[in-house]
Amino acid sequence: MTVNLLQIEEFLCNLALKKVGPIIKSKSGTQKNYNLKTGSKKVDIVTVIDKQVEKLIWETLRSEYPNFEFVGEESYIPGETKVTDAPTFIVDPIDGTTNFVHDFPFSCTSMGLTIDKIPVVGVIYNPHLDLIISSSKGNGVRVNGELFDYKSKIANMGELILNKSVVALQPGSAREGPNFITKMKTYTNLLSCDGGFVHGFRNLGSSAMTLAYIALGYLDSYWDGGCYSWDVCAGWCILKETGGIIVGANPGEWEIGVENRSYFAIRGTTDDTHQDKKEYIKKFWQCVEGKLDYN
């Protein structure tokens, strides 16, 4: 099957800009009645709009690409839904749901496509900032439709060094237990002057926006666990097109797939052999205390 990736990217951009974005923008901060996905976890939020938007995306994609598979946050069934080798749309209708409920302007829609489980198209649209970042494998990255000159950006950023980098961190919705403790200890190690002593950390509350911001060269890396394929698929494609890489959050996990549930994303650099990134990753992993495990 020959697939025109650029055409799919354009299709997803139109869908994001014309149909999905306006809904997210108009409904942000209006949802007082949200549900809690996991019952006992009072911070794992989903709204009726998430479900509506996913349905809209799914129906639109199904009529245009009837042979492609579809994985969405709202239709996902734990233990059953699997990403296969077939062309698969992986979609988070609204990434940053807590932002959406609070009207913090970093909720977005995130739509990706994998083929052979590899992200090959990615579109992220934040309607609050009216910022759309899109890419497809081999075709570079576009910001609001204009080709993004990531090479110049990277050349201006200088070396990738742990104690000079700004790292994105998100505590997530698990707020006790081993994963939470691993995160808190690792944050302390990263910030401490006796540890990684990173320049700073930032948290936008949206994995997709964070990956997009790394691709744009605003941040150096992003370490997280607890996310799903739909949180990272689109951003992964975008980041990769700017020379960035994604490995596992735990030490030694050099090769991971979109369903890994824990991730460490690193921006592109001028070193195409990735040697500098590997050094950075190793130093970062030394700050990871414990293991993130979501299986």
Binding site: K42, V101, F104, P171, R175, F180, G200, N203, G205
Partner: peptide
């Protein structure tokens, strides 16, 4: 502020 045994707040944001 984050712990489910304590404030268990919705979330944290950092802008710098």
């Amino acid at each position: 502020l984050l712990s489910e045994n304590s404030a268990f707040m919705h979330g944290m944001r950092t802008l710098g």
